[in-house]
Design a protein around this nucleic acid. Sequence first.
DNA 1: ACGATGACAATGC
DNA 2: TGCATTGCCATCG
Length: 137
Amino acid sequence: MPANPKDETETQRSRRLILAAVRAVPRGQVAGYGEIARRAGLPGRARLVARVLSTGDEPGLPWHRVLRSDGRVAFPEGSPGYDEQVQRLRAEGVRIEAGKVRGQRAAATLDEMLWAPPEPKPKASRPAAAAGTRRRR
DNA sequence: ACGATGACAATGC
DNA sequence: TGCATTGCCATCG
C-alpha cells in the first residue's frame, strides 16, 4: 500500500471512492452504475464503476446490488454472472422479474430512496386469466 | 500514438 | 418500449 496517500494515482483514488460507494449500498437495496459514480463524487463515470466491478477482486463487496439505471441486471440474461447476481439479490429479498427489479428501480438519488414511494402502481389485477393463461399445477 | 472495447447513461425519435 | 447517437474513460493490442 502506498506509504504515502500522496503517492496514490487518480485512478486508484477513483477506484477507492467507487468501492466505498458500493459498500454503502444497504442490504436489500439496489443502485445504478451512474448513481454509484455520483455518490462517489465521480459524476459521469458509470463506465468506470462497471470496470472496477468487472475486476472482481475486493471480497465481500456487494457488487450484486449494482444494476443498470433501468433496473435491469447488467449481465446478459442466462450468463453465469447474471444467474449469480439474481440469486444473490433474491436472497436479500429483492424481487426480480424478467431480469429486472420490481418495486424499487435503482434509485436516482438518496432522497428518492428515502422517499420510497410505496408502490408505483399495483397495476390492479391481471386483466385476466383469460382462457388459456392458466398455469399448470 | 490510435482505434476498439466495455457489468453504462442521458437524450432524442 | 426500442433503437440510434453521443459522452465518458481506463485498458488493450
